[in-house]
């Protein structure tokens, strides 16, 4: 059965993932919109930076974040100066790292959805007196709904599953940074296979249920909306 420590890690994991997903949508939406629309020469560079976590070992990302956010790192000095202390081994640090780590899973589906909308609905909206911001909320977001759904689910589940980054940046502090994936590792290290089974099973069931929903819901609602 799940112990109360296990339940704590589950609760913390969902808290980190929810908060990180919210922040990723907030930051990723304008970023993806810019990437989908711009002809700027910076597009390639920004795309590469955002996508880097897709190919980088999580430990490498975690290592750099640890150094940057530590007391002598650039970000660490900034947060200390702001009176926030340093981020490593805190809940906030874990959220920041998760946002960077899972960002491509949010930005890429959004960018694809925005690109597939094309110019036509935006022009139609402009001729119907909608300002660009108005058009974004009344036309782009509804048309990109499947993209937002995919981005939310992928961003959330990917954050739930992270391990390498957490170990590097968050460590293993109960109720602060100890998430499910780390707890499973702890159980296995202590040869508590039955406890590991319970937690692992929970994650497996959760991930499968989410993907099943994603693919059955999206089956009736195609990702791209061809314009009629």
């Amino acid at each position: 059965m799940l112990t109360s420590a296990d339940l704590d890690t589950l609760f913390l994991t969902f808290k980190v993932a929810s908060l990180a997903t919210f922040l990723m949508l907030l930051l990723g939406t304008p970023l993806a919109w810019w990437l989908a629309r711009t002809n700027s020469g910076w597009k390639g560079l920004i795309n590469a930076v955002v996508s880097l976590p897709l190919v980088l070992p999580p430990t490498v990302l975690g290592f750099y974040l640890l150094v940057l956010m530590g007391p002598t790192g650039a970000i660490g000095e900034l947060t200390s100066w702001l009176g926030l202390g340093t981020l490593p081994f805190t809940f906030a640090g874990l959220v920041v790292a998760s946002v960077l780590y899972s960002m491509p899973f949010v930005v890429q589906p959004l960018q694809a959805a925005f690109t597939s909308i094309g110019e036509q609905p935006l022009e139609a909206a402009a001729t119907l007196r909608a300002s660009p911001l108005d058009t974004f909320f009344s036309v782009v977001i509804p048309l990109a709904k499947p993209g937002f759904l995919t981005a939310t689910i992928l961003g959330f589940t990917h954050t739930v599953g992270e391990f390498g980054v957490v170990l590097m940046i968050g460590g293993n502090i109960p109720n602060k940074t100890r998430v499910v994936s780390v707890q499973i590792y702890n159980h296995v290290e202590a040869l508590e296979y039955s406890e590991a089974h319970w937690l692992a099973g929970c994650l497996l069931a959760f991930s499968f249920a989410v993907l099943l929903t994603l693919y059955t819901v999206l089956k009736t609602q195609p990702v791209t909306h061809p314009l009629k």
Binding site: A125, L128, A130, S131, S138
Partner: peptide, 27 residues
């Protein structure tokens, strides 16, 4: 464009696919 008092009909009707006919008219 959105500040010009014009009506525009595109070559493709260019209706909003997420809105009904009434929704398109009300937009």
């Amino acid at each position: 464009t959105h500040k010009r008092a014009l009506g525009y009909v595109f070559q493709e009707a260019n209706l909003f696919p997420h809105l009904t006919v009434a929704g398109n008219l009300q937009f």
